[in-house]
């Protein structure tokens, strides 16, 4: 998908969890792990590796708990 769409989707998730109590990076990571297919997570990892333009800080903070696709 387009990088803009992927960034929008990730940021929407972060925006919701910004308002929630608890370990927010863990909540964002859990949501992405549960619902994002490996290709989508791969695109997210690649985007972050390329500087993570446009992503909210909470998404960046969640990255080390998001499962990196193995294949």
């Amino acid at each position: 998908m387009s990088p803009e769409k992927m960034v929008t989707m990730a940021n929407q998730i972060a925006t919701f969890f910004e308002s929630q109590p608890g370990d927010r990076p863990a909540l964002v990571a859990a949501h992405i792990n549960d619902f994002w297919e490996p290709r989508m997570r791969r695109q997210l990892f690649d985007h972050v590796a390329a500087g993570g333009k446009g992503l909210k800080p909470l998404v960046i903070d969640a990255m080390d708990q998001i499962n990196e696709p193995v294949d």
Binding site: M1, F35, W36, E37, R39
Partner: peptide, 18 residues
């Protein structure tokens, strides 16, 4: 064990060629 693609994700992945 990995979640699959949702309908909009399928269409995105199709446009991407995967």
């Amino acid at each position: 064990p990995e979640p699959g693609l949702r309908i909009p994700n399928m269409l995105d992945a199709a446009v991407d060629g995967t």
